[in-house]
Design a protein around this nucleic acid. Structure first.
Lengths: 344, 344
DNA sequence: GTGAAAGCGCTAACAC
DNA sequence: GTGTTAGCGCTTTCAC
């Protein structure tokens, strides 16, 4: 590997290094003929600009940092989430010649703010994508803010102030799912809430209420059970909902794991899904396709959200314009086999 | 954010910048008192060395690249694998002050070799961890070799020549699982093979044969079915194995997905697991804990392998010694509920 | 349009 | 043990 530098290219092309730099960086003010000469020299020498030198001189690293909560490896949903986020961000990065640095971290650590600050100050990524739930934690957001690095928050429950937040329409799409169930003739539609700490999950409940109202169905506390996002809690809630008299004909769970728990319990109780009970989830994790019957759910557009976030981030780095406001990437219903017409 | 440089620290500590550099890089030849002074100055100014400058001057990027096959986001096992690999490499990186750059790629692309070369030459990671199946592809290995960047191959089917390969003991642990089943009294132990292209999976079959022999059980072709790693193929193989007369009392599948398929079919056929049929898998993916009954399987130590690979890589970068040979990170049995004593 | 000179902030080599 | 001097390979600034 011969180390080809900008000087070699300049010499071969018969121009100054500054001109080569202009061509490489696609700057204006280069005559077409000159540009062609330089490009030929670059191709011939197989010149690759040295990033470290570039970074040092330009104060840009061409690196985007993706910071997220370190998933326990054995948690499927987390793995899927993380991979999808990474893919979204990566596709934006590669389209713009940025590379991606990942930094999973444990927010429970005391000095997490400092850890992130050190990371940023040493590596100097040009921008940060911060994923939920970290994106909802003031001390983490503040730590990043303090470094002055452009920041986009991914899917925070509550969008606020000083950065761009990319969210999805949890509430509206949950209402849509509820209306869909109502349109199948269900009148007793139950809901299983998720872990109270997740704001986004709370919005799903509000959407359920909206959907009932929009379908002129009356709300009943009896039809709501409180889960904690785990399969096990889905099972418990299902038992509670299905064992009373006057049982629901449809159950909408705030996430897929709990919905899978419902299917499991229905199976155990001999209740046929979807003939006697429709079940819907939220997130469209891989498990949704693997349970039997395959789960009707809501596709959380994580990859699209992440890509959107990174695209906006990179654009803002280039314009030097600050990022503000909230952008919504809509989710969509994934109708599969676990929902069907209400029984007579 | 005041930009604190090495000069500021040197001035405050009353030493030369070289001494500061020595302290920062933990080099020898600094008197304890001097070191303390410098460290105090660093702390006081909250000095963070600028990586770009460091990289440029030292020809080290303090970046490790992890290159792997781009997983389809909807494939659970892939997501789990990728996350576990990342975690292993990350923990080694962070322990040694390296950051991780990830580069999933599609090996089917024609110019993948060039893509990787460009990545390496521009970013100049100090080392590369190359994951299976890419680690088994000569053109990819050669592309990286051509750049002269230290390389560790993760879990390649066949270890060879010029780099370090980190593998697991697929064959031996498969023999152990087979012996375990035999020790439960099973004499008709069936095996479901995986996709023939995956070398590692072929070793599992060899291990099964070893285990039979070591348990003095005779091998029968009737007890082997050919799957392709998917749940569906596990179901087909299970049907084939369980519908004949003289059916096996234990089925060992070359991966967890196929084992999950077996459980599904057993359920459908009314065969109780583990009372009438023991089922074992391989990989210990999250699904293994989610099926009912929870799957006895073999924990593929992916995270440990990745960490081991990265540790070796970083050590070799520091010593400037080449990486050679093969290192084995052993897998372990995960006994859960899907296996039990053979029926009478 | 193009080029010359001056750094970016650090480490390497060598002197003291 | 410690300091001095040169770069690393680019981009920036400003002159032409």
């Amino acid at each position: 590997m011969p180390k080809v530098t900008i000087d070699d290219v300049a010499e071969l092309a018969g121009v100054s290094i500054k001109t080569v730099s202009r061509v490489v960086n696609q700057e204006p003010n280069v005559r077409e003929a000159t540009r062609a000469k330089v490009e030929a020299a670059i191709a011939k020498l197989n010149y690759q600009p040295n990033k470290a030198a570039r970074n040092l001189a330009s104060h840009h690293s061409h690196l985007i940092g993706l910071i997220y909560d370190d998933p326990a490896y054995y948690e499927i949903p987390s793995a899927g989430y993380v991979i999808r986020m990474q893919q979204g961000v990566l596709s934006a990065c590669h389209a713009s010649n940025y590379e991606l640095l990942i930094h999973p971290c444990q927010y429970r650590k005391k000095d997490i703010g400092k850890e992130i600050k050190t990371l940023i100050e040493q590596v100097r990524p040009d921008g940060i994508v911060l994923a939920a739930p970290l994106s909802n934690m003031p001390r983490i957001v503040r730590a990043i803010e303090a470094t002055g690095t452009p920041l986009v928050r991914l899917s925070p429950g509550a969008a606020n102030g000083k950065q761009l937040s990319v969210v999805t329409n949890d509430r509206e799409i949950s209402a849509e799912m509820t209306r869909y169930l109502a349109s199948l003739g269900h009148t007793k539609i139950a809901f299983i809430t998720g872990h109270p700490s997740a704001k986004a999950v709370g919005n799903r409940y509000l959407g359920y209420r909206d959907g009932l109202e929009q379908s002129s169905l009356k709300f009943s506390e009896r039809l709501v059970a409180a889960g904690d996002n785990s399969i096990g809690s889905g099972e418990e809630c299902a038992l509670q909902l299905l064992e009373g008299k006057d049982r629901p004909t449809a159950i909408f769970a705030a996430n897929d794991d709990m919905a899978a728990g419902v299917i499991r319990v229905a199976d155990r109780l001999g209740i046929k899904v979807p003939d006697e009970l429709s079940v819907a989830g939220f997130d469209d994790i891989a498990l949704a396709r693997q349970v039997y019957p395959a789960l009707t759910t809501i596709n959380q557009p994580l990859s699209a959200m992440a890509e959107h976030a990174a695209v906006a981030l990179i654009a803002s780095i280039r314009n030097k314009r600050p990022l503000l406001g909230t952008e919504i990437v809509p989710a969509t219903l994934q109708i599969r086999e676990s929902t069907g017409p209400a029984p007579d």
